[in-house]
């Protein structure tokens, strides 16, 4: 087991290095140099060159990349923002809690609602209720997030004056964004739960339990749930990523100071240290979550462990 975790950790570091290289490469193709972007076209070429030099932007691509990675590894330093001249990590620490809260809230809401509805749909397959649940979830998944966000603001902020339209001061500010983000990931969880549940219900031991006269409720929520949840739990990691993605556009509409807003602004301004730092941070977070899910899964499902011991993959 320790060997498994150790190897996975090593993989994680390599993957993160890969992410750093990938994003750094893509960003190096973005047009314009930070000096011109910050100072504008009316600035003198000398001032622009001086600023670029200060950022180390006059260096070739690979040197900039290795400098960057070296700083992270040896000094634990994510660099200084081109725009604010402040450490990138400060920006991340200031914004991250909002994004985390929004993501966790959205995931919890969609997990609870969708798993519940998914089970009901499965149990009452092809009933009106089943159709209603599935179709509603699909409709929500078919609405563009920003469109839903605008509609929610129109109704709940402008017309009813019930909820604030922007900000992140307290929990009430998170209600509309949470609804927006969780709506986007609604359908996938519901459908997954439904099909996993359907599969489980048809299995022998459930039939046996039924035959033995256990109540339906007990069978569903105790026996079937437990097994059907396995595939659902493994996708929670991925759906965390999806919620994080959903948060990026949602934050823009609700003016929520989170990582999404930070990154979109930084991409426009070619503030490479900020884009790199926050992307790496999100990637790190995401891989930790995936790792935890995988380790848990390995504990739960012994087949994975056995397979790993045999060398990880099947040879044709």
């Amino acid at each position: 087991m320790y060997k498994y975790i150790g190897k996975r950790l090593l993989y994680m570091v390599l993957v993160l290095l890969g992410v750093a290289f990938l994003v750094f490469t893509i960003l190096s193709f973005t047009p314009g140099d930070p000096g011109t972007i910050i100072l504008g076209i009316t600035a003198s070429p000398e001032d622009i060159a001086a600023l670029n030099k200060e950022f180390g932007y006059d260096q070739p691509f690979l040197i900039r990349f290795f400098d960057y990675i070296g700083n992270i590894i040896f000094h634990f330093d994510l660099g200084i923002s081109y725009q604010s001249r402040q450490p990138v990590i400060d920006d991340i620490i200031a914004r991250f809690p909002n994004t985390l809260l929004l993501t966790v809230l959205s995931m919890s809401v969609s997990a609870v609602v969708e798993i519940f509805l998914g089970v009901i749909s499965a149990v009452r397959q092809y009933s009106v209720l089943d159709h209603f649940c599935v179709i509603t979830a699909l409709v929500f998944a078919s609405v563009p997030g920003f469109w839903l966000a605008l509609m929610l603001i129109m109704v709940f902020s402008l017309k009813l004056r019930m909820l604030p339209s922007f900000g992140a001061d307290d929990l009430i500010h998170f209600i509309l964004p949470t609804v927006t983000v969780s709506a986007g990931s609604a359908a996938s969880l519901l459908r997954l739960t439904r099909s996993a549940m359907l599969e489980t219900i048809r299995q022998e031991y459930i039939k046996t339990a039924k035959a033995k006269g256990a109540s339906e409720k007990r069978i569903i929520w105790k026996h079937a749930m437990k097994n059907a949840m396995l595939p659902v739990v493994t996708t929670l990691g991925t759906s965390f990523g999806a919620s994080l993605g959903g948060a990026i556009i949602t934050e823009t509409v609700f003016a929520m100071p989170g990582m999404g807003l930070l990154i979109t602004t930084a991409i426009r301004q070619k503030d490479i240290p900020v884009v790199m730092g926050s992307t790496l941070f999100l990637a790190f977070l995401f891989s930790v979550i995936i790792l935890i899910v995988d380790i848990l899964y390995a504990f739960i499902d012994p087949r994975i462990m056995a397979k790993y011991k045999n060398g990880g993959g099947r040879r044709g």
Partner: peptide, 29 residues
């Protein structure tokens, strides 16, 4: 499987670690 799987899977993992919308944003930028 084996080496092929490993290489492809690791590269895939790299891409999967970045939320898709972010990746698209960076590419469009």
């Amino acid at each position: 499987g084996g080496v092929v799987d490993n290489i492809i899977s690791r590269i895939t993992d790299v891409f999967l670690c970045v939320p898709p919308i972010l990746l698209s944003l960076a590419v469009v930028a």
